[in-house]
């Protein structure tokens, strides 16, 4: 669902600390028709120009809080990511992205479902690695975007 609209097209920017690019960011929405408890959000498959960035270098900015790791989000069990709200996905990459257009392969993983499933116990012990369709029932294929870098350095 919303295959081509999960990333806002003008949202790709580098992240800077003390004038040095430390990574990049994207504005993302739910690949669903509803929101979910934030704890269910299991991270992204994201590859930029063929380079994959695992969940461990991703942080997620939502509900007015500083970016949190997906490990931290597993404890946000009573906090909700509402359907209407855009979140910012930050990806650590020393030096950031080069100017110009980038090809971004993207899949969201959210462990929301229609009740109990055979995979439940396994996913408690070993949450699936995003990018193979688990937690992506409504957008089962990886979607590719071509987006320009909108640099935001002062």
């Amino acid at each position: 669902m919303f295959d081509n609209f999960l990333i806002r097209r003008d949202s790709l920017k580098n992240d800077y600390q003390g004038g040095v690019a430390t990574g990049f960011q994207l504005a993302v929405r739910h690949a669903n028709y509803r929101g979910v408890f934030l704890s269910l959000h299991n991270g992204y498959y994201i590859a930029v120009d063929g380079e994959e960035f695992p969940r461990e270098v991703q942080t997620f900015e939502i509900n007015g809080q500083s970016p949190r790791s997906f490990e931290e989000l597993t404890t946000a069990v009573w906090e909700h990511w509402d359907y209407d709200d855009e979140a910012i996905l930050h990806v650590a990459k020393p030096g950031g992205l080069a100017p110009g257009d980038h090809e971004i392969a993207f899949q969201q993983s959210v462990l929301a479902a229609y009740g109990y499933l055979p995979t439940d116990e396994e996913w408690v012990k070993h949450p699936p690695v995003p990018g193979h369709g688990e937690g992506s029932d409504k957008t089962p294929d990886i979607v590719t975007y071509r987006l320009p870098l909108t640099d935001n350095q002062e």
Partner: peptide, 12 residues
Amino acid sequence: VFHDVLQFRDHV
């Protein structure tokens, strides 16, 4: 209403 059984993440 919905029923997401992994909300607590440390158990079903």
